[in-house]
Design a protein around this nucleic acid. Structure first.
Lengths: 413, 413
DNA sequence: TTTCTTTCTCCAGTGGTTTTATTAAGTTTG
DNA sequence: CAAACTTAATAAAACCACTGGAGAAAGAAA
């Protein structure tokens, strides 16, 4: 084999053949059934503008794979009744693993993200190689108890920090002290199942788009506020990962020039002003050093170790002065960061998640209002900040969505 | 025709048929010839991994359209000599129009962006409807003098501000006082040629990718610093426009909380700290009010109306104290904004343009260094800020790239 | 000259989609 | 209630872009 003599400027691109057409059409048809089922063959044909014959042949293949089944007949306005097709989420299963700073969650799910079995394991503050060991153990044990792995589509792991999804490596995670861990490889070797690894916020966007209320949007920004502030973005229907998987570090946006020192080495990062540790320490300082009067004192019965985000949210709802003061500050910082991203990126919708946002409609209203006031006038009507739509199991749904999106959404590349 | 009874959740998606395959392959083959020509049929087949037969048939069609021609034979290492194919940029022409605050540029270009005829018209500070009239006149006159419009692919107009490319409307442009102007429609009615309208920064990214040195990148951020600060982004090989075409307003990123008042109604926008008017007024203040000593005084021979960006750049290069002081500040503000976008978006490359960047390698080195120091540690090696690669006619090349990218780069949607 | 290479093209075959019936299974109407 | 009309699903045939093999074209090497 000879090397080409000239250096060619080509990005590898898939060329077109019959296989490509079929793959594309099959994927569109399956997705149509999943989203709109029960639906008849002829309805699909009309909906996506494809010939009935193609639908018939694609559907019969999908049915033989078990992903779809016929489920009775529908009504007719003067003709043969349509045979209704329905997506069957139970022929295959997915194992989702969510790694956070406090817990490792693992679950067996069907293709609709319904949890069949779940185990939550505390991280016990383990870090570095110890937590990797723990993850391997937890996965191993979980698989031991699962009888049938033949229909398992794979293991999907999501983790905060910078993740190289293509190569399955956790590149950078200060809080868990993980740098360059080839987790995909480690688990694939142990389990012989295909393993997918992705950033948590990226997975959450996919889940909101795949399972949640945001399936009609193609450009979405997802912001999660917890121990850190992470972001994930969907652009044109696909996750945007950035160079080597390192977009979405929104928590390290400089919000205050020369402000608080951050673990990243910089100063004034958003994260340090709005994450839970920041809120916690402000409350503690106010109570202990400044002897401030607040309902929080009673709510934790004097025991500040019982102070958790939901207590703060509750205090806000009870119109507590201290809580409101802190929330106002959070809103100010956050609204600057969000306004900046709107000016720069302007997605169709921004989804906020995190314990201090959850069940806190006051927060959502206030942030919308503040951002509308900050944004340049023409964009005012476009500000659309909403709360997550996935409920409490959003982490595992995120993991599931990574596999499902990859399998069921056709992508050119 | 009956309306469907249920609301369907479907994004319109193109389904696969033979036409799609052919379109895709033809586009890949044409692009291969354009980028790598002169090149033989068999080389193309090997390069993009497609059958020689397909190449032959696609090429003969492209040749009959005039877009490609056979140009002699190449060398062989023991066999029939290959027939070389070359892209023919002169069978069709493009009319590019660039609108800025000071000038309207219009040019007739070939398919490689070579300018065949150019007219530059000052805007004479016209605004609102008057400048629209002027644009219509300028285009009209230019077309009158162009003999043959049959082979003209269309008119591509680029403009700063928020532009709705899909509908061809200038949505928002404070400096020219334009709001909701359906420019595409206005010009199509007058000329009967297809008209394309896009944001300038978006067009520049396309041009850097299509004509310039950045064709190997698929995720690019382009920042232009002039009278304002605009940005354009390419994501996964396509322009990202944001909701209703309003991404890229990077100039209105809040950089100083509670800082200078901005025309957008906000405070502390980046634009007000780094654009030319800001630099200009700082120099003037320093010279007149503070009586500062600087080489700029001599360079403009005491006449401050002659102070232009190139003089400032020259002063920086001559190590003038005042100029350096100002540049340091600009670098600081800009590096914050760039660092933020890297954390959020992290493209493979950031391209800077604008008069104070052009021919100013000191600036480029300094901004790279400052951003490297600000960015979170793992991203340090990935910082890649470069200068525009298109020379002085980048505006018209941008306009050309809009049409060429649309015509020659296959897109699914 | 003969043999080997390499390029390009013709031709039959493959396998998707579409178009055009055809069949199945109804509803509606006089 | 039978004839006429509708609608759904499939079958058969036509279509057409790609592929692979055969072969022609054109030249290099021995």
């Amino acid at each position: 084999m000879k090397e080409p003599e000239r250096g060619y400027m080509m990005l590898k691109q898939r060329t077109g053949d019959l296989k490509l057409i079929q793959e594309l059409n099959r994927s569109i048809i399956l997705d149509t059934i999943r989203k709109n089922g029960p639906i008849s063959r002829s309805e699909i044909a009309k909906l996506i503008n494809i010939s009935p014959t193609t639908v018939t042949s694609a559907v019969s293949e999908i049915i033989s794979e078990g992903l779809v089944y016929e489920d009775g007949v529908g009504t007719s306005s003067g003709g043969r009744k349509p045979v209704l097709l329905r997506f069957n989420p139970d022929t295959h299963s997915i194992i989702g693993v969510s790694i956070t700073n406090s817990y490792i969650r693992i679950a067996d799910m069907n293709l609709e993200g319904k949890i069949l079995k779940k185990v939550v394991h505390p991280t016990n503050q383990l870090k570095g190689h110890e937590i990797i060991e723990l993850i391997l153990d937890v996965v191993d044990q979980f698989l031991m108890q699962k009888a049938d792995l033949d229909y398992c589509q794979g293991i999907s792991i999501i983790s905060p920090g910078i993740v190289d999804a293509e190569n399955g490596v956790i590149t950078y995670n200060t809080k868990l002290n993980l740098y360059g861990i080839p987790l995909k490889k480690l688990i694939e070797e142990k389990t012989n199942l295909p393993v997918f690894l992705d950033n948590d916020a990226n997975a959450f966007v996919l889940a909101e788009n795949y399972f949640g209320l945001f399936s009609k949007y193609k450009d979405i920004l997802y912001i999660t506020i917890g121990e850190g502030v992470g972001s994930g973005m969907m652009v044109n229907g696909s996750i945007y990962r950035g160079f080597l998987g390192s977009s979405g570090e929104m928590g390290h946006t400089t919000i205050v020039d020369g402000g608080l020192k951050c673990s990243c080495g910089n100063r004034g990062c958003l994260e340090n002003y709005v994450n839970w540790p920041a809120i916690y320490s402000r409350i503690v300082t106010a109570i202990i050093s400044q002897n401030r009067d607040t309902v929080i004192k009673e709510m934790v019965s004097g025991d500040l170790t019982r102070l958790k985000p939901d207590i703060f949210v509750e205090a806000v709802n009870r119109q507590d002065d201290l809580a409101w003061e802190i929330m106002e500050d959070i809103l100010n910082y956050l609204s600057i960061a969000i306004t900046n991203t709107i000016h720069f990126f302007n997605p169709e919708v921004i989804i906020l998640s995190g314990e201090i946002v959850q069940d806190n409609p006051l927060f959502l209203d206030a942030i919308n209002e503040k951002v509308v006031r900050k944004v340049i006038p023409t964009l005012r009507d476009q500000v659309n900040i909403q709360s997550t739509s996935l409920g409490s199991e959003f982490e595992l749904l995120g993991a599931a969505a990574v596999i499902l999106h990859g399998k069921f959404k056709f992508q050119m590349m």
